[in-house]
Design a protein around this nucleic acid. Structure first.
Lengths: 377, 377
DNA sequence: ATCTTTTGTTCAATCAGTGGACGGAAAACT
DNA sequence: AGTTTTCCGTCCACTGATTGAACAAAAGAT
């Protein structure tokens, strides 16, 4: 018998089980009929549950399913990258409904990025039918994010992005709940398949990002940079390359797309897409293999440390079979038998971030305490 | 205003704040006087709180402090090692009151180890005054432990230790709550100084153990072996040594006490104490420095992955200044500036395990839900 | 001796929830 | 078509926890 002490807990039960009849709810929670009716009434008035379809025949009157009311519920997600912003409207499960992309540079500051992005978001929201009810906004941003306040911390390479400016700007716009999260972590949440899964999600593109999910929650660490493995010094082949961060021998200096382009630039490879297109050539293939090997060696220690069920590789380069195979081989070789995770390419690609953001927003907005506040106030 | 919805929450408040007057509790919780009196009455009857000393003068009747009743409360801790068992009676804060140690081999099986250990524990408990009230038993064991059931999983090198045998045997003996935890993890909990601290605790003795604490909780991972870094293959100096686990190049094959003894055995070093005593000699010093360097390189990735506030080094070898300095140097060199942790030797030494076990027991026994059950039943 | 503050007690009122009982609704069964 | 079965909403008396407020006692300050 599940303990259901409040409206919020009842919503959680209905959400988890995907809808139960009133009779089943009575059975399951042990509460009295009157209480259940009162509560369902309050939840229905607040648009949180509704009476769905009839259930199968059992010899008498058919039971009707009580469902979590996700009809028309959408989440607005804003995926801020280094050179572009992707704005989506998704349903509560994170499936993209409508989509827009703009090009702009993160380094131009919050006004230059957020202004056009939020205008595009407004247009996207206006494109929805009249029954659409936005539940909240999720923002992914390549910077350290303070868990408590949702503020963007002043990170080294982000001048102009003052702490809290994102929440303030976005919160003012629609008056909706706002969740801000680091992009790699949002992607990791998106890749995770259950709250019991321990997951390491690595993105290899221009740079190297990584998010770790334990028990449904993202790891943050003392300074909010848990998982940022791009700048560990690794024992890669000599000579140690100089990294963009000013230090030597960083993982990113061996294995990031930027590093690969630096080494292959003489051969006319200018963009990551060039690398992907040329990944069959011996020269590029060899560099990719070397990059995967160094990355795998570093990830082996990460894997031993957090003992994940899965390691998911994303990003244009991370998803290449050659990279996935190289990383997998290295990890499985270096890690003790019992610690071996599944190592695989992301099947979500860029959809991982909006999916993760939608989950984070839904988790916040429909958390038991939030539901209790909504029903009470 | 703290939300205090139950007896358990009230106890938690009193515990956290270290004792408040009734007037302060009324102010703090907002509950009515009658309710507070009723609840304190029930808690006093159950021996959970008591009326302590008078507080400072404020011009009228002096307030009296309501304190969590830890008078006479003790925890029995059993620290099972490879070659010995340490049994302690501690107070709730984990300070050792009485102590006994026996020599026995873990590999001789549960009967040979637990029988004498529990007899010794009985003697220790009998040595306490009549007012002593044991709250629970904490067991530390060098094996993987299932978080949910507290059972010892069938680990490779522990024949005879069937799952659940520890909980069953100990539970039968005194009818007290039993908590079982991996020894390295118990030590990590003992070393942690606050629930907000993210901590990596490494023990270097015969083998290499490691526990990671995030937000007061121990990391477990998919197979329950998060932090077990002894058997990652690391890029140490060639040729790769063969490890006891049958693989090549494991961290333990480079940096464990067993590995060092293997390399220095020809020079007459037989025990870890011999190594400690000879750590000033050039030959031993060089081996220790090399071991620390390899360990530090591996820990650098661990540190970057979990981003801890502190790395604590324990164990007879881990606490040596030469090792601490070597590991610190390597970590600080390899890790990005913002990720740098404090790296220091354990000041608790072997007391970390009983301290951590006592905390785990106290946390379980005096958890709000447990208190509610106690008061209700 | 008087004032101030803390603490204990009592009591009516409130409120959420319980446990039935009853009856209507809707479908299955005969 | 009528009967049976199951589901669902409503009503109601009752319980138990909690509140709010008033009053009194306790204990030290002034």
């Amino acid at each position: 018998m599940t303990v259901v002490a409040s409206h919020g807990a009842l919503v959680a039960l209905v959400r988890e089980r995907g809808g139960l009849s009133r009779a089943q709810l009575l059975e399951e929670t042990g509460m009295s009929r009157g209480t259940l009716v009162t509560r369902l009434d309050a939840l229905t008035r607040n648009g949180l549950v509704y009476e769905g379809e009839s259930l199968g025949a059992t010899g008498g009157r058919r039971a009707r399913r009580i469902r979590f009311d996700d009809r028309g519920r959408v989440v607005l997600t804003v995926d801020i990258g280094q050179t572009h912003v992707r704005v989506s409207v998704t349903d509560l499960a994170g499936t993209e409904l409508r989509f827009a992309e703009l090009r702009c540079r993160l380094t131009d500051g919050p006004d230059a990025v957020l202004g056009p992005a939020l205008d595009a978001a407004d247009a996207l929201l206006a494109g929805g039918g009249p029954g659409e009810r936005p539940a909240g906004v999720g923002i992914g941003i390549p910077a350290a994010v303070d868990p408590a306040t949702g503020m963007v911390l002043p990170v080294t390479p982000l001048p102009g992005w003052a702490p809290g400016v994102v929440v303030a700007t976005v919160g003012r716009r629609w008056g909706l709940p706002v969740v801000v999260e680091n992009d790699a972590r949002a992607a990791a949440v998106g890749e995770s398949r259950s709250d019991d899964e321990t997951l390491v999600a690595v993105k290899v593109a221009t740079g190297i990002g990584c998010g770790i999910v334990v028990g449904g929650d993202v790891m943050r660490g003392a300074a909010g940079i848990a998982g940022d493995i791009g700048h560990v010094r690794v024992g890669g082949p000599a000579p140690e390359p100089v990294c963009r961060c000013g230090r030597h021998g960083c993982l990113a200096a061996y294995s990031s797309g930027r590093a690969l382009l630096g080494r292959l630039g003489g051969d006319g490879y200018r963009t990551l897409d060039d690398l992907v297109a040329g990944s069959g050539r011996p020269r590029v293939g060899a560099e990719l293999a070397a990059a995967a090997d160094v990355l795998g060696a570093a990830l082996a220690t990460t894997v031993t440390t957090v003992n994940p069920h899965r390691v998911v590789l994303g990003g244009v380069l991370g998803e290449l079979p050659a990279v996935v195979d190289g990383v997998r081989t290295r990890i499985l070789d270096a890690v003790s038998e019992r610690a071996r995770p599944v190592v695989e390419a992301s099947t979500l690609g860029p959809r991982a971030i909006p999916l993760g953001l939608a989950r984070l927003v839904a988790r916040t907005v429909f958390a038991p305490e939030a539901v209790d506040r909504l029903v009470a106030g």
